[in-house]
């Protein structure tokens, strides 16, 4: 009996956490369905009072959001595959090194996890400037060449490290080169990790506000996050319009998370994708 009560309590707590986590976004959806420019009420609303879908179209008429969306898509469509390729190859190569070098590079990568981006903001500007990349979308794409973040490289490394090494060895003895071993043996066995890394890389590039703030100046190069900030600067009080823009920007991420959960994991969790078992 006591056990059953505890189980019910755990389920209620889980439900509470889920609802609390979704609440901010839900509130944003409610207000986004009001008419653009309409001031909010001073009573708490739990259900949309009206369905002004036109507010969503208004976003595109207020600022050149379509251009910003195109820029964002351009960045993501190049940076995401680049990141997966470089991080996956680097993670695989780490498993093939001699023990001494492997330990050195893995330790350095873990240490790099503790170095925040802001540590190199200032002079990355000078490097990008030297390379002629400041104020171009390439400034946002170029981190993809370096695996995006040491986190991605480590995720792939941990996944490939768990694969029994005899599999790599026997492929090598059959005459496979490193590219073939990676493509035919390693990569298919680490599919959950690749999906997890794809999700995290998408989040990284799609929502990136800092990099364009630092390195992009021309309005025609703006990406969606900057567009949202621009919209806020134009009229901070037009909450329906602002929330419509925020919801549109969040939507691909929500879809991605739900898809990954439903299609690939079912009973397993996001955590299992990056499992270090």
């Amino acid at each position: 009996m006591r056990g059953r009560v505890a189980t019910v309590l755990v389920h209620l707590a889980r439900l509470g956490i889920a609802l609390l986590s979704l609440l901010p976004l839900y509130w944003a959806v409610i207000i986004s369905l009001r008419q653009s420019g309409q001031p909010p009420t001073t009573t708490l609303e739990w259900w949309p009072q009206s369905f002004h879908w036109d507010t969503y179209a208004e976003v595109f008429r207020t600022v050149p959001m379509a251009r910003y969306a195109r820029n964002s898509l351009f960045v993501v469509s190049l940076a995401l595959p680049l990141t997966l390729l470089t991080a996956s190859l680097a993670g695989f190569a780490l498993t093939q090194l001699t023990t001494a070098w492997r330990q050195r590079l893995v330790t350095a990568s873990v240490a790099l996890l503790l170095v925040p981006g802001l540590a190199v903001w200032t002079f990355r500007f000078h490097i990008l400037n030297l390379l002629g990349l400041v104020d171009t979308l390439w400034a946002l794409i170029v981190p993809g060449l370096a695996g995006g973040s040491p986190l991605f490289v480590l995720l792939f490394y941990w996944a490939y490290w768990r694969v029994p090494h005899e599999l790599y060895e026997s492929a090598r003895l059959d005459g496979a080169d490193a590219w073939t071993v990676w493509r035919l043996v390693a990569l298919p066995l680490a599919r959950p990790t690749t999906i997890a890394a794809a999700l995290l890389a998408f989040v990284l590039y799609w929502g990136d506000f800092t990099t364009p703030v630092l390195y992009i100046y021309s309005t025609k190069m703006y990406t969606l996050p900057i567009g949202l900030q621009l919209l806020r600067q134009m009229d901070e009080t037009n909450l329906p319009l602002l929330m419509a823009a925020a919801v549109m920007m969040a939507l691909p991420i929500v879809v991605f998370v739900v898809l990954v959960q439903v299609l690939f994991l079912r009973d397993r969790s996001l955590a299992n994708m990056v499992d270090i078992e």
Binding site: R14, L15, I17, A18, L19, S21, L22, P24, L25, W27, A28, L199, L200, V203, W206, G207, F209, L224, P225, L228, Q229, R232, E236, L239, L242, M243, A245, A246, V247, M249, A250, I253, V254, V257, V258, Q261, L265, R266, D267, R268, S269, L270, A271
Partner: peptide, 23 residues
């Protein structure tokens, strides 16, 4: 599983969108 996905969501929402929602 769905509670885990929900709890994970605020972390991966685009930063600007999340900040605007809090505005």
């Amino acid at each position: 599983g769905l509670a885990r996905a929900a709890a994970f969501l605020p972390t991966v929402l685009p930063e600007t969108a999340y900040a605007l929602v809090w505005l």
